[in-house]
């Protein structure tokens, strides 16, 4: 089996404050892993490390077999990211936004046009390609960021609380869509603090105060207990 995302004994501190402590997590290809944690659990720190916004000397991160510290470019090339903050240029058109990203990943010319058109087709947004992004609603913007993250055909997909600010329908749609992507072979790491986005068949990792409290298949972990109850019991935080 080809490896997806590998996180091995990763720790990180902001000065004296420990943000992550010995986090180890393996997400194979074709798996949807929900990283569940209350605010301040260390999810954002982990995502910053995974996207190499900053690095740590303790622990190892591998993306599709590429070590992020030793071969950062090869690792980043195999990774698609949907950030928590919006990263679209609101004044530019939908198509321009996608072409810009494609070029950053070394895809230009006809190939970029083809992949952009495909991405828009998948979203059912082909006719809106020439519209500026600020004309889109929040759900469409998120879907667009997701489609953009897939343009370079990554093997690992990271999403940092991607449903924040979306209405219930858009939230359900995007959650289902990303589950489909995992079924098609992507390794998915989905950070959230909302338990209803997690399915029983998903891999689950519960992060609290920088430590992994539980890790395994959701159904096995929770048993008969509703996930929300279990999450509250483990973290003692109202999610």
């Amino acid at each position: 089996m080809t490896p997806g995302l590998g996180i091995h004994a990763v720790s990180y501190s902001y000065g004296a404050k420990v943000a992550l402590s010995e986090v180890t997590l393996e997400v194979p290809k074709g798996r949807f892993c929900a990283l569940l944690g209350p605010n301040g659990a260390g999810k954002s720190t982990l995502f910053s490390l995974l996207t190499r916004l900053f690095t740590t000397r303790t622990g190892r991160i591998a993306v599709a077999g590429q070590d992020l510290a030793r071969a950062p470019r090869a690792a980043l090339a195999r990774m698609g990211v949907v950030f928590q903050q919006p990263t679209l240029d609101l004044d530019l058109t939908v198509r321009r936004n996608l072409l810009y990203f494609a070029a950053l990943h070394g895809i230009g010319g006809r190939e970029a046009e083809i992949r952009t058109a495909e991405a828009l087709e998948r979203l059912g947004m082909a006719e809106r390609a020439a519209e500026p992004v600020h004309a889109l609603n929040g759900g469409h913007r998120r879907r667009m960021e997701l489609a953009r993250a897939l343009i370079h055909r990554p093997e690992v997909l990271l999403l940092d609380e991607p449903t924040v600010g979306l209405d219930a329908a858009a939230r359900a749609a995007i959650t289902a869509h990303v589950h489909d992507l995992a079924d098609q072979g992507l390794a998915v790491l989905w950070a959230t603090h909302l338990t209803d986005e997690v399915r029983d068949s998903d891999q689950l990792a519960i992060l609290h105060r920088g430590r992994l409290l539980a890790s395994g298949t959701t159904g096995d972990l929770r048993g008969d207990e509703p996930l929300r109850e279990m999450f509250l019991r483990l973290t003692g935080v109202e999610a």
Binding site: T51, L53, P72, L76, A77, F83, T87, F101, L104
Partner: peptide, 11 residues
Amino acid sequence: GSMRLLLTAPL
């Protein structure tokens, strides 16, 4: 946000 996006380019 766009800076983060930029910095994850494989360059």
